[in-house]
Simulated scan of single mutants.
Amino acid sequence: MSQTRPSGRQATLVADVAARTEAASKVYGRGGSAVTALDGVTVDFPAGAFTAVMGPSGSGKSTLMHCLAGLDRTTAGKVYLGDVDLGTLDERRLTALRRTRIGFVFQSFNLLPTLSAAENISLPAELAGIRLDAARVDRVIDAVGLRGRSAHRPSQLSGGQQQRVAVARALVTDPDLIVADEPTGNLDSRASGDVLGLLRSAVTDFGRTVVMVTHDPGAAGYADRVVFLADGRIADVMTEPTADRVLDAMKGLTR
């Protein structure tokens, strides 16, 4: 997917760090069958910025995302959300943190088919015991362009509209961090551009922090920076990315 450089991009990244890892490693299995998915990764994710994470298949990008979002625990090293060390939290507190401070956008949408768009958007807040102001829900629905579709169930929405619901759901609790795992993987090029524009707007207009795993250089061109992984390690960090620059970097990693 090709695109021109998005407008409204921040000229510089803010100094604050929304999330970070310190010498984070993740090993699956034991003995001779052990697989090292992350190998001592230290990386910061600036607050109020859009970071894309890229790398060849098996490079560790999804594992990094899952550990950063508290969906998986590292084998060694540390992961922080703000100043909170996720490794110090038990499962109950980790679940509470995910529900209140992290928004999720997945490739498969993960909407409940029996709920309307508006109900799907509000669900994470309800599960977290957060009482949402109806006006806030309306503002988020308007921001993602779903006015007039909010009463529809997922089966009545296109793929792009369902992903808009997912983006709205991630935004509605005003989280510290939004993680997006291949959010355009099931969408056509037009819907992909719409969703990427929404994620860009979440940063530029709402001041959120977005970390997105993607394989698409065009998608990475919407970000402020790209973190490249290879063999479970940081291979490079690119600022001011464009689709062409990202594509060239990816070719270098796969040679």
Rank of each mutant, 00 (worst) to 15 (best):
M1S: 14
Q3D: 15
P6Q: 15
P6R: 13
Q10M: 14
L13V: 13
L13H: 08
A15W: 11
D16E: 15
R20A: 08
R20H: 09
T21K: 00
T21H: 06
K26R: 14
Y28L: 05
Y28N: 00
G29E: 11
S33T: 15
A34C: 10
D39W: 10
V43N: 03
P46A: 06
A47E: 12
G48Y: 13
F50Y: 14
F50W: 02
F50H: 06
F50Q: 01
V53G: 02
S57F: 14
K61E: 12
L64W: 05
M65T: 10
L68N: 12
R73L: 13
T74A: 15
T74G: 13
A76W: 14
V79L: 09
Y80C: 00
Y80V: 09
Y80H: 14
L81Q: 10
L81M: 13
D83L: 04
L86I: 12
T88H: 13
L89R: 09
D90P: 10
D90H: 09
R98Q: 11
I102G: 08
V105R: 02
V105A: 07
S108P: 00
N110H: 14
N110Q: 14
S116A: 08
E119P: 05
I121M: 07
I121R: 04
S122C: 10
P124D: 12
A125P: 02
I130C: 03
I130H: 01
D133L: 00
A134L: 03
A135S: 05
V137E: 01
L146M: 03
R147Q: 11
S150P: 04
H152C: 02
H152P: 00
P154R: 01
G159V: 02
G160Q: 05
Q161A: 05
Q161N: 06
R164Q: 04
A170S: 06
L171P: 01
T173S: 11
T184H: 04
G185N: 00
N186F: 02
L187Q: 03
A191Y: 04
G193T: 06
V195A: 02
V195T: 03
S201Y: 06
V203L: 01
F206H: 11
R208Q: 15
V211D: 11
V211I: 12
V213C: 08
V213E: 11
V226Q: 07
F228A: 02
M238V: 05
A243Q: 09
A243F: 02
A243T: 07
D248C: 00
M250H: 07
K251G: 00
